[in-house]
Design a protein around this nucleic acid. Structure first.
Lengths: 334, 334
DNA sequence: TTGAAAGCGCTACCAC
DNA sequence: GTGGTAGCGCTTTCAA
């Protein structure tokens, strides 16, 4: 692997017999002389010149890079976001940097702080928890930031939200309509943004249906399959009259479906199940599982679009977009 | 969003009452005078100085960035890789850039070419198809490259492989031992690296078991759920004697499980099913699905480690690592 | 040990 | 329209 010398703009200039300024202009389309452009291009070909992003960045003060920070790319919701963010940015020439922070708030703050290093032009942040220090850091970001998730109203950054409160409520109402009366809920941690919102939505749903809330029917499971399975097993053993389970995400709900099967309960005959996030897991499960889509893909796309507007120099006040949830009804709750 | 002036090393120097060289040295640990270090650090705090990555990169000629290019981060195998690559790189201070090329060979070549822009120090490439132009581009990469996937022997880059040929053979042998005699195979496209290898492995497996290959029992499905479902439905309708289905990945195999259920065939009683990649889908399916792990996580980690060695200046000859497959037997094939 | 100064490769301003 | 030239913010010689 011989580290060949990378030709610079000077080599091109020499070969073309012009000045480096002319080369720069020709390459950036700031010249009207067609002959000049042709000569420069020929020289570029000849020496195999490729502009240095780094030098350009130092001069122009932008990098063509955007970062996306979330807890774990392994989470289907974040994955959906990335899959939309990347092409949206890429279309206009931005590259995407990925930060999986592993639910470490310290790490997220580190990302926020490191923005001052100016290695990216903007950031899309999807925090699992929003602390006071987050808010503080978001007051004076070194580059434009878009936050996906709930944010205090006075934080001056663009903000894209899901409405998982309404989503959870929709699920409960649907289960009620389908005939369920003892609707259990397996949530994620209450101190996370989605955990809190879904909990509230569940309660709201019960009220809207005239069902009495019963805290014994609520469990917490860290958003994972095994947690859902354990919680559901426990739940159904202690409360055999439960006739529906809402999972705070599809993994939890899938775990619950497995537990139900192990307990010999039929889905949806004995117990109806609904998940949240509407990931591929839901569509491919057996029976296919109803799930509340929180529009992860849309949130990703919209966040990217908002950020691009800022990067274009848009100075209008921070925007707040809420993506409505939608329920996909499949066999598990019919 | 007031674009405040970012303090430079000059401000720090002025406040500390020293030269910019001293600031640089103190910050990079190239000074032994403790007093100097203290003064500089104090000044850094005072003005809120954060070094510019870009300026550092221009000078030092490295960026602290590594790119990972694959077809689609939505694919579970690539996802697993990313999940290991990122922390491995991050641990030593590298950031990860993501290129989802969307199975566009042109795009992959673009990534390879753009390496000359020196916006990254290295690349991990996981091509779905390897063309002559890939090979050509890989002969003189501008920065170290590690390829995950099959590669001609004479291409001088580090290379991490799965052995999906052996993996597919293992699956066939397992199905045979379990009692299957008419083992069908739903593959991905034959012109992809994994599609080809798995096809060969399937044939090898049949031979090893003394089963007669029958091309009618092979279908192609583009590695997706619906493809697997369609193919399986078609297959089982035309060949009701099929008693086992191997899917070239878990999505295909899941699709097949659904088709079987729709056809009223019991898994594993009537038809045994095995998938490949051993994704979360397999473990959470019902019944839990046997699957051949091709070590995606390990391949990702190893690729990252190999790349880090190169970035450390290791000049030894290109290495070739093959990660062995392993079969996880679950209910679907018992 | 410290400071002055020379670039890294580029853009953009200024005269011509 | 074209060519000098002054930096962008940093690291790293080189002398003192």
């Amino acid at each position: 692997m011989t580290q060949r010398h990378r030709p610079t703009i000077h080599e091109v200039a020499k070969v073309a017999g012009v000045s480096i300024s002319s080369v720069s202009r020709a390459l950036n389309g700031n010249t009207s002389n067609a002959d000049m452009v042709a000569r420069v291009n020929a020289a570029v070909q000849e020496v195999g010149y490729v502009p240095s992003m780094v030098a350009q960045s130092l001069k122009t003060r932008h990098t063509g890079q955007v970062a996306f920070a979330m807890e774990d790319i392994g989470n289907a919701a974040y994955l959906e976001m990335v899959r939309r963010i990347q092409p949206t940015l890429r279309e206009v020439g931005y590259r995407l940097l990925l930060h999986s922070t592993g639910a470490d708030a310290e790490d997220e703050l580190g990302v926020l702080a490191s923005l001052s290093q100016n290695y990216v032009d903007g950031l899309i942040l999807c925090p699992l928890r929003v602390t006071g220090r987050h808010v503080e850091a978001l007051r004076h970001p070194a580059v434009p930031v878009v936050v996906i998730g709930l944010l205090p109203d006075d934080v001056p950054v663009d903000n894209v939200r899901a409405d998982s409160r309404v989503g959870a409520r929709m699920a409960v109402e649907h289960l009620h309509e389908a005939g369920a009366r003892r609707i259990a809920f397996i949530d994620g941690p209450l101190d996370t943004v989605p955990g809190r919102a879904r909990h509230d939505g569940y309660r709201m749903g019960l009220e809207a249906c005239g069902l009495k809330p019963d805290d014994h029917l609520i469990r917490f499971a860290d958003f994972q399959f095994e947690g859902g399975r354990h919680s559901a097993r426990d739940l159904l053993t202690q409360h055999p009259d439960v006739d529906a389970v809402l999972g705070a995400n599809d993994l939890i709900a899938m775990g619950a479906m497995h537990a139900l099967r192990e307990l010999g309960r039929h889905v949806p005959g004995d117990v109806r199940v609904v998940g949240m996030d509407d990931t591929p897991l839901a569509a491919t499960s057996f029976p296919p599982m109803s799930s509340v889509s929180l529009g992860s893909a849309d949130r990703g796309r919209i966040a990217a679009e908002l950020l691009l507007r800022r990067l274009d120099g848009d100075g209008s006040p921070p925007e707040r977009v809420t993506v409505p949830p939608s329920l996909t009804i499949r066999e598990s709750s019919r």
